[in-house]
Amino acid sequence: MMKYLVILLSDQSTSFCYYNSSDNIEENKLMPLETLRNAIKYAFMEDLFIQFVLPPFSLPKEYEDIITSTKASIIAPSSTSYKADVMVVDGFLELNNIEILKDVSYVLRTSKKDFFEHYEEITRRIVELSRLNIVLTDIEDFKEDDFILYKQILDEFACCVKDITLSGETIQLNILTDRLVENEMNNCNAGCKTITLAPDGQFYICPAFYYAKEQPVGNLENGLMIKNSHLYKLEYAPLCRECDAYQCKRCVYLNKRLTREVNTPSKEQCVVSHIERNASSFLLLSIREHIIFMPKTEIKEISYLDPFDNIKNK
């Protein structure tokens, strides 16, 4: 059942995930006001919670009036002065130059190369943050050496988060702490619980599908028409439904791009998510060496990083 409506207010609305919103843009198109009003009406009627995604420039006043008067969460680029719930930081240079606000979640989009080179910037600023989501924009390019390096970095993060936790503070770092609080899959859920309305007035599975010029899945006038909609549900994903890397994004866009099927993750996505899962386990055990911590949480030791190997060997 759909719960969220992501509204891309412009073709240049910031990307908060794996895709690049600057790809395939022919013009700087704002969502027409009439479409925006209808979108809000649609969300109210369908009982969907709205998430506005803003571009890196000021919107006309009529737009701002509508946005500020609508109960919704706002995702905006950190380069703007919008009061947003989620601020998107594009790269480490930007991370170094922004003033961190309390009660705001930050999304850091970075390539793996920059991440490997500058990850210490995160440990330096981590105490200022209440929540940081790290999005590696080129997961598909991870190679065996990258997996090893990623594990080492996450273990370093774990030591840092352990110290913060033992000092009585809390920090949410998606790739490390989300797995601690989940006891079932909590993924992106695009096409299943979340749907996106693009500036062209058409629905897409998620913003990435719009920018990749995939087919729309309905419009405001006729509603949603998602063919094979069940394939976006966890039960119809043979690898994922057995998996306990609960924090995994399970990105259906990456799935489609890398395996051709929205319900089948690539090896790279699976291994990265399992390295994160295992780092969460390491963090949990490290903290428990000192204090009683989340006693009901259990992350079992496993012998694989790619659940596909389990199915293949059956």
């Binding site: 119809y236 043979p238 690898l239 395996t259 051709r260 099927e261 319900n263 089948t264 199915i311």
Partner: peptide
């Protein structure tokens, strides 16, 4: 549905949907 070629080899990601397919799904 091309899964690779004689020059670059097999892209194993493109085989994953087939090898995880089951009857009920």
């Amino acid at each position: 549905w091309i899964i690779g070629n004689i020059h670059t080899g097999i892209n194993k990601n493109l085989l994953r949907p087939f090898l995880t397919l089951d009857r009920c799904t």
